[in-house]
Design a binder for these strands. Structure first.
Lengths: 327, 327
DNA sequence: TTGAAAGCGGTACCAT
DNA sequence: ATGGTACCGCTTTCAA
């Protein structure tokens, strides 16, 4: 069943059928009705490839993240997919893993599928040395990074001031009397190093000595072990900051296992923060706003407008059981 | 930059370029090298639409779920996307929401994009009365339901024996002396009613009176409230079964708020079960196996083999802090 | 308002 | 091993 069949059955040319398909105003009401009726009755679905060939777009955007199984990315993907769908764009999801090779392949796959844009979630998409793959992709379609930052032509970034947020976290704990503030984190993405820098600056500003603990991998269990070993090794913090709610839960459990209940602040304000016991105080990095902004930016771009290459939103502390500013 | 340009620049016909593109053995090594070199140097990316038009496939599958932000679905989507990617298929992700209209539209969108198959995650895709939209989709491409069951031509289901699992849960609690086993659940999907049936049968078999509590919506907070009100209303359970880890966390918190620490079993063995404090004992519904099986089934289908319309895997209890069989 | 026909960028069959 | 060419199904001038 194609446009020729429909044209024949409704006694018009394929050009007219195409016009009906594309809601062109230059079709008489009568003709339109007739054609639509035939389409309906034949259960006709236009072939997207042929359409894409002509229009040079399938109305699809690629959405990349290292792993959707991570609740934070899942939340982001959910928001983005919804926004794209509302704008009548499909979402090609690709999980890349943390390795460069996976990211390169993902970009290649996205380009092969002729997506209209590529959305990167997370700062893991900025490589230490060589970002030429990003550059190449950006030369073909707009690339948008959510919660990450790379200065490259055609790459647009929307992010949250995480450095500042972490700096404030230190100040907050220090204000309530903490002197030995442990910082638990995992990998060194752009975002990760921003937070770490924020922590260090905050500690310096407060005249305190940094206590940093890097976990083996990004998992609750790994954070548990790292903190447990650290405590066993005689480290005695009186406050804990963490780069990620998932790790924060691990840290929290390790502390609890030793009967400790210290001020603790997580990051991302994910579902885990609410589900943890006690519920985690966490930095809300404004994910919904981040996604909304990124989508609006993309829309502008696709409409041919100029857009800023860097947009920074400010975060917010969500107070729950593990820490409150009043003390 | 298209196949004609490449052909010209390498001094061969487009047919030969096409052969190189498709790894046809009928190309001399010398020619192949030359063509590949030109492609490389020109940064050529074949147009997937044109290709799709000829091959009648873009090598893409649609992956639908009600909402990826739910950690359980996110995990499933992650596994499926990976499996599809390994088989060189792209994943068109669509979140449908719980309403029929959203699901219908999602199927329509998937079909318009000419996907090769549709994967439905969760039992929410079975409607109470009318499944004609599924039937229509299945008449065009294979439809696979993971963790759900609908008997329809062209629809293939892989699921877990959740009814039995819940029945066993009752037996387990009863064996350790529980007499007043509360069941907390939310909506009535196919999966939901299976579990509820399992609970009822289990209670009957143990000679106990069912105590059922339906939450207002699928959220931790909603479960908390429901249980809290129930306790406030004088209900005194001595064991709790829940249809979902997310709800289980809410129930757990409500119990803890009243100083209660009862045997409690969640469902899905999601990341939340591990992150909860105390960690939840939960039924592992074999999600990875479910996804693997579904993907293998799909592959078989695409290769033209017959496949069973229903495959049932058996679940497994993962014992953590909130309940152990030995007592 | 409608139709005819030239693309769009590939695939694949038929020759050579 | 290679080239010529007729599709694939739709969009979009250009004429009528």
């Amino acid at each position: 069943m194609n446009i020729y069949d429909i044209a024949e059955k409704s006694g018009v040319s394929i050009a007219t059928v195409s016009r009906v398909l594309n809601r062109s105003p230059n079709v008489s009401d009568k003709t339109r009705r007739r054609v639509l009726a035939v389409m309906q009755e034949q259960g006709y679905t236009p072939n997207a490839f042929a359409r894409g060939l002509g229009l040079r777009t399938l109305h699809m955007a690629a959405v990349l993240c290292t792993d959707v199984a991570d609740p934070f990315y899942a939340q982001a993907v959910s928001l983005i997919e919804e926004g794209l769908r509302q704008r009548e764009y499909g979402s090609l999801l690709i999980c890349t893993g943390g390795e460069l090779e996976g990211k390169k392949q993902a970009l290649q796959q996205a380009l092969e599928k002729q997506v209209d844009a590529i959305l990167l979630i997370g700062s893991a998409f900025r490589e230490r040395s060589d970002n030429s793959h990003l550059e190449q992709a950006a030369s073909q379609v707009p690339v948008i990074i959510l919660n990450g930052w790379v200065k490259l032509k055609g790459v647009y970034c929307v992010l949250c001031n995480e450095r500042e947020a972490m700096e404030q976290n230190v100040a907050r704990l220090a204000k309530t009397g903490c002197r030995h503030i442990l910082y638990v984190y995992d990998t060194m993405t752009y975002s990760g190093s921003e937070k770490l820098t924020g922590y260090r600056r905050g500690m310096q500003a407060a005249g305190l000595t940094p206590m940093e603990l890097c976990t083996h991998e990004k998992s609750m269990e790994s954070a548990y072990e790292a903190v447990e070993q650290s405590l066993a090794g005689g480290i005695v913090p009186d406050g804990v900051l963490v780069s990620e709610d998932l790790l924060a839960v691990g840290a929290q459990k390790a502390l609890a296992a030793r009967g400790l209940s210290l001020p603790l602040i997580g990051f991302n304000d994910s579902i885990l923060a609410r589900c943890a016991t006690p519920a985690l105080t966490s930095v809300d990095n404004m994910l919904p706003a981040l996604c909304r902004t990124g989508l609006a930016l993309l829309q502008g771009l696709l409409e041919g407008q100029e857009q800023p290459q860097k947009t920074v939103l400010s975060s917010r502390l969500v107070e729950r059981d593990t820490f409150r500013e009043k003390g």
